[in-house]
Structures are given as C-alpha cells and as structure tokens.
Design a protein around this nucleic acid. Structure first.
Lengths: 190, 190
DNA sequence: TTAGTATTAATACCAAGTGCTAATCTAAAG
DNA sequence: CTTTAGATTAGCACTTGGTATTAATACTAA
C-alpha cells in the first residue's frame, strides 16, 4: 500500500481538478493501484467518469463564452455617439463587478466605462488620457444599469489636449461624474 | 432528400459550432437522415466525433481558466502591504491591456491597479472611493511591469474619509500618479 | 442502359467506462 | 494462531458513441 486510502482519495480530487483529462488507467498508474481501486475511489468520492467530466468542463466553457464577452463589455455598450461632441454608453452591473463584502461595484468599472467613452467620443488614432478628476457620488450595485454621458468641451487647451466631461447615472440619479483631459494628435471637425 | 448535401454540410458546421454536444444520432434526427450519412458528412467536413469535440472545447476551457485568472489579476498582485500605511502591487501589462491601434495600455487598467491597492491598503469592510484625481504621465506598453505604491495620508478628514496617494512606475520612471479620497466606516490601528 | 453520386444498412471493432460478483491480501483483534 | 473486516484486485457482461469497411439500394443525368 503506497499511500493510505483516505489520502489517496484527497489527492485524487485535487489531481482531477488540475487535470480532468486523465483516464482511470492513467490514474491507476499514477497511484500504482489497479483500475478497480480507482473506480471504487471515484465512486466513494462521487467523481464522475472522464467523459462526464469533460462534458461538464466543456459546458462551463460554453457558458464562459457568453461570460467572457460580457467581460469585454465592461466598458459598456455605446448606444449613441456624435464624434467630437457627445456620446452615451450603458453598462449593466453584474455580480462579478461588485465587492463580495458589501455588494458595491468596484470603482474601476465605472472608471472604465467613462474613460472608454471619453476615448471613443474623440475618435482619434491616439487619444490618451492625461489627467482626470472623478467623483464617486453614490454606490452602484449589481442589477443597476449605469448610463454614462460624455461631452467634449469646445475649447482646446494649448498642448493639443481636450477635456471631456462625463456623468454616469442610475435611474436618472447621478452616481459618478468627472472630467478627463485627453491628449490627441489630430483635431477633427474643427 | 430534405436538403441538398452541400447545404446540409454547411448547416452541420454551424450547428456543431453552436452546440458541440450533439451525438451523431441527434444530428441524424435533426436533418432526417441516417446516422451513416451524418458520419460521411463529418468525414468529408473533417469534423471530429463528439468526444473529441468535447475534449477540445474542454481544453480551451482549461487554458481559459488561466486566462480568466489573469483577468482577475488585472488589479495587480500585491507584493507588500502595511495596513493603514502603505502597500505595493505589480501589474504585468499584456497585449490584451493595450489599444490595438497604438499599443498603449488602456487607462482603466492603471486606474484599476491603483484603486484596488488603495482599497486593499485600508483593509476596511466598507472602503469606497469617493473622489480621485489622476495623472497619466507616460504611456505604458505591453511587456512593461508597473509597480504601484500607495501611501495612506495620516490626517483623516471630517467625513470619515482618508486620502491615499498612489504612484505607479515602470523601471523607476513615473507613469501614473494620483490620489484617492476613500470613505470608510471604521478606523483601525489609531 | 449505365455510370456516378448519395444514401442507407450491416458488421466487426475500439475506448472508456458501469455494475456486479468473487477472490485475495493484509492487518488487527480475540 | 485463527478469525474477521476492510481494502484491493480480478473477471465478465453490458453500454455509449463512436471508427472502418463493405455491400446494397436509390436517384439522377448522360
């Protein structure tokens, strides 16, 4: 008996978490026991067979496909844009965006939405954020739909930069506001 | 013949892209042909069998697991923290963090690293960002390792809030700096 | 009619299992 | 020393979802 049963079963669990692709034969070799022992172990630990494991891993992947699209959408979906003037985006706050401890959205998601919108409204090959000052006015929670409005200020500063004002609201209540000073290489429509 | 062969084979491809879990039997029913026909179709289209499909979907998931961990690590890895005083985190910039058009890191990643660090250094159940003012001093690119230092200012404002100063550097060069005014419910270690 | 394609059927085989029964091994207790 | 229990191993029939191959049938077009 190389390794006591209990320990082996614990190892089995972590082993398959790391690599769910192992067949019973692989596992048997790994622990130097018979295939039958592996099967008993799986039975006792309620670990499904290889093919079922792959099925469930794969189905998570299919769910994840949707999820990772959402992850890219943390910037928010731009629903209206008038270049060099103003733009609007919406961002639906999910569980993944909030602190587990208090259910309040992490600040950088609101920042990301606003900053992305500020970049987008300038439609410039090289629009970079230089400075910004922000005000998180009210906590945002999962389920909230954040509407962000960006407005480009008409005056351009000496150093090729432009100021974009942003205001994010949830059900018409301001939750976040600020301004972004953006550096740009070219000025369009002026 | 319900549907001509070519069309059926094209449909087969998209069908399995949408749902790779279908057995040949399922597919046969779907197109009202025999299982053998489905198998010939798969052969001609070089579509592998169910189990191989699941294997490849699942292996993408396992790669994705690493990826999504990285996605959660966009906040940066905290390498040193002295609660209510100062903390340091590092964030390795990857291709996914930069604008394709100019190769420069999106501002919200730098913000996220700094803001997360500001939250972490306060170690408070309810540390929220109230205001912040930021300066993006120098573009950051893929491959750069951003080191962010956060320092908690000693004086506490009337309204239960604390100011955290942050400075991010790449190879000792400042790239980003700012301050976060954080709201907190309790003050510890004072 | 006859060739050529498309479809269906039938058979043997494989991998990776489940489910069940039976044998063996080992170690501790009486 | 023997008994007993738990752990391990073995064997066999059966299941799924296939592959590979060969043969038969149907439809179509020249």
């Amino acid at each position: 008996m190389r390794v006591p049963k209990q320990e082996r079963q614990q190892l089995l669990v972590t082993l398959l978490e790391e690599d769910p692709f192992l067949t019973d034969e692989d596992i048997a070799r790994h622990f130097s026991v018979s295939i039958q022992t592996v099967r008993l172990d799986r039975l006792e630990c309620r670990i499904p067979e290889l093919r079922e494991r792959l099925k469930s891993v794969a189905s998570q992947q299919m769910l994840g496909t949707v999820k990772s699209m959402q992850a890219e959408e943390i910037f928010g979906e731009i629903i209206d844009a008038e270049l060099d003037n103003k733009a609007i985006s919406i961002f639906d706050v999910k569980e993944v965006h909030v602190f587990k401890r208090n259910g309040i959205a992490r600040g950088h998601h609101l920042f990301a939405q606003a900053n992305s919108l500020a970049v987008a409204v300038l439609d410039d090959d090289l629009a970079l954020t230089v400075r910004s000052s922000l005000h998180f006015q009210k906590p945002v929670r999962a389920g909230d739909r954040v509407v962000c409005r960006a407005t480009v200020r008409k005056e351009t500063l000496k150093n090729k930069s432009t100021v974009v004002d942003v205001l994010s609201t949830v059900e018409s209540e301001p939750v976040f506001s600020g301004e972004f000073q953006m550096y740009r290489t070219t000025k369009k429509g002026g």
